[in-house]
Amino acid sequence: MPASSRTATVFDALGHPPRTEPSAEGTRVTLRLPVTRAIPQLAGHYPGFPILPGVLLIDSVRQAAGFACGAELRLCGIDRARFALPLLPGDELELSLVVTPAADGRVAVRARGTRSDGQTAAELSATLEPVVADA
């Protein structure tokens, strides 16, 4: 990764550019996420049986929401997250988010990750806020 980021990075989930469209509730964002985007992390999680860490799904949602907002976002809280199915190399997830404005400049996000076979693999509802840029 080039030394060009203004904040720490976990991995880059946005290999496929997210699609955004306005919806009644806010902005709907869709991101295709092949599990192999996280190959360096999968080497250690776990050696011999790679499984996508749930926290990388959470970070993928953060990145996709940030793309829609045009701002780097920081996670403030998770109301609920569910990881119903283990995600393995070869799996591809479609992440579908609804991003809505919340109090104090924060944004609320509800996201669902669906595996290629149509099964819901993960769900997340979380609150994020823009990272305040420093000089």
Binding site: T7, A8, V10, I58, D134
Partner: peptide, 21 residues
């Protein structure tokens, strides 16, 4: 690893430890 890509000159807020980690 997470600080590998942080640009020179970034302020301390750029070194916030990621919530995911």
């Amino acid at each position: 690893d997470c600080y590998r890509g942080v640009a020179d000159g970034a302020g301390i807020d750029g070194f916030a430890y990621p919530a995911a980690l």
